[in-house]
Design a protein around this nucleic acid. Structure first.
Lengths: 224, 224
DNA sequence: CACTCAACCCGACAAAAGTCGAATACTTTT
DNA sequence: AAAAGTATTCGACTTTTGTCGGGTTGAGTG
């Protein structure tokens, strides 16, 4: 219980709650672990709980009947997810799958929802949280519809790289990255290769290093 | 003022408020009209008010530097918009443009935001409203990334048609519809034409009529 | 009613993205 | 360390989507 409590304290939209409230939540929290590739929940299912990731990474994605996959986002330690379904009483709009061994706390919907009525400041945090989701989805739509694969790759690199290095976790294969960018591994491979050939980046299994940030920014069509 | 009050009463997320509250809102409401093609607000601008559409239609879209446009949604009479930016204190994530003559009420952000703290039920409505936005964006992403133009066209027809007829407003040109579907007018034209040739639909300037719903559903790849 | 302009359509073409089969390189397991 | 499995790459090819120039239609305007 103690552990759950400490974690709850760090969730953004629970900020400002006093200890008794948190203890109550902590008492209803359930611990879950998932093996790599395990399905955490499926698109269309009714959501029953909010998740708070303790360790591991997952992907949230949609799939087409013929097996193609579009990843909406990756989620790592410290991030809450499935708030949307829980707070809005909707079915899960997408599927969540563990990319590696994952441990997470589940807080049943009722426990969290009660807070909405009694603690308006929580509601405000929730709104801001979901608003960020909308913003990132809007920019995903714009990327998919308005920009070439090369541009999207360049943008991903600029987005993810810290100090011009984008570290690659074990699961960050070209297959997963391609699904994130809305394309297929082959095409991503070609795009990366042509960047390597052009001397813009350097790449190995564990990281991608940006060598020529300026050219990359031109490829990304970032506006001044 | 009276008029504004009557309209406010019909806004979904203001349901449950008592009259004095609404009167206060109505007093701060501002009336605005826009000519066809007028820009209502631009992507990136700070949002200062929530809009409530009285008459006319608008489009919310993102554009690329080279002029291509992706429409996120159309909005008509009775629908509120820009809640996202107002409630979450973000800049507008997209641009809004009038498709025809538009009249709308603006309610300044501060007036609405105060309600969030004092009236938790309003917050819940706001969350549900934004959640719907997330869901429709997720399905737009899936459409763009996972399905062909023909499939998207078929889906649009099935979505929009009532009684197998999709009425076309004056502004619903192939240019606008194509921008909504994430393609260009020519390609949309071809897709529609091939459906007409296949006897699946019938089409004129004012409406598109579904003749063979079953085939259309197969094209839309709706899952059983 | 003639004129104008936007919408729509067509056919040929160009480019981007996706597919396929097979070779190669890396990891992980045994 | 060998075997097995996964990830990446390659080249050739197909499909889809987008582009371009020009032509037709039809609604709205003076």
């Amino acid at each position: 219980m103690k552990i759950a409590l400490d974690h709850l304290r760090t969730i953004a939209f629970l900020q400002g709650l006093d200890d008794p409230q948190l203890v109550e939540l902590a008492q209803s929290a359930i611990w879950r672990e998932y093996a790599p590739n395990a399905v955490i929940f499926l698109e269309g299912e009714a959501a029953s709980a909010i998740y708070y990731m303790d360790f591991g990474w997952i992907k949230v994605s949609k799939s087409s009947p013929d097996g193609r996959e579009q990843i909406l986002r990756f989620l790592g330690p410290g991030e809450p997810f499935n708030e949307l379904s829980v707070f809005a009483n909707k079915n899960n709009p997408a599927t969540a799958i563990a990319l590696e061994a994952v441990g997470a706390w589940l807080i049943p919907r009722e426990a969290v929802r009660r807070l909405l009525v009694t603690h308006p400041e929580v509601a405000i945090h929730v709104i801001e949280n979901i608003a960020d989701r909308v913003i990132s989805l809007v920019s995903l739509v714009a990327d998919l519809s308005l920009h070439s694969v090369e541009t999207r790759v360049a943008r991903m690199l600029l987005d993810e790289a810290t100090e011009d290095v984008m570290a690659r976790r074990r699961w960050a294969t070209q297959t997963e990255l391609a699904a994130r960018l809305g394309t297929v591994p082959d095409v991503l491979s070609r795009a990366l290769r042509s960047m390597v050939d052009a001397g813009v980046i350097e790449m190995n299994r564990h990281e991608i290093r940006v060598l020529d940030r300026q050219t990359l920014e031109e490829m990304a069509m970032v506006e001044s």
